[in-house]
């Protein structure tokens, strides 16, 4: 007896590529969660990585960069912020 697979519908769940315990250095909120301005995590509130390997909620970081005090530096190591490709 030979069974033939006609259809197969798989299900997968995506998460951000970060350690579970890590939190955003700006808002101290979990990466699995969202920035303080958003209601819900997911595509609408993505993360952003710098070349310095530091990771933040994108909204948090953009807000920081747009302030004058930031001088376009990464808030963690004070080096110029360059978004990782």
């Amino acid at each position: 007896m030979k069974v033939k697979i006609n259809q197969w519908a798989g299900v997968a769940v995506w998460k951000w590529c970060v350690e579970d315990e890590e939190v955003c250095g700006i808002c101290r909120g979990a990466f699995d969660g969202c920035c303080p301005d958003c209601k819900l995590p997911g595509d609408d509130c993505p993360l952003i990585w710098g070349e310095c390997k530091h990771c933040f909620h994108m909204h948090c970081l953009l807000k920081w960069i747009s302030t004058e005090a930031s001088q376009q530096l990464c808030p963690m190591d004070r080096r110029p912020w360059v978004t990782a490709a």
């Binding site: 259809q7 769940v13 995506w14 699995d32 995590p41």
Partner: peptide, 26 residues
Amino acid sequence: HGYDENPSSADASPHFSVSVLTQSYW
């Protein structure tokens, strides 16, 4: 959902599909 309209044709190859979920919604 990956179900084809006419999946019963005899010699068709398997029809695969994937649903990717955002964890916090589900």
